[in-house]
Amino acid sequence: MTGASPYRLVGARPEPEFEVRVDGRPVPVVPGQTVGAALHAAGVRTWRTTRFGGRRRGLFCGIGVCFDCLVTVNGVENLRACLTEARPGDEVTTS
């Protein structure tokens, strides 16, 4: 990334990050971010495989329309990662 950053652009002084665990691995989250955004920011761009072709999927529409980014959060299946605001201690599992 170049000198410009989104944080500098908006003058962000974010609150302390918290962690969620994605398949056991810690991922940092700024309060208010979605699970999908936190994963994407951590460099994780795929977290689901399709049920027929085993194709890898992550964020596509980003606004809850396409259902590509489904995850399991604390045992609740098929939540849209792009809509689901992360909470401290969330256990996210992928398929």
Partner: peptide, 19 residues
């Protein structure tokens, strides 16, 4: 993965501050 809608990229940035 990596192909997104233009609106999706915008939502990541505007709503999550993720490029």
């Amino acid at each position: 993965p990596g192909v997104m809608t233009a609106g999706g990229a915008q939502a990541l940035l505007k709503g999550n501050l993720v490029v």
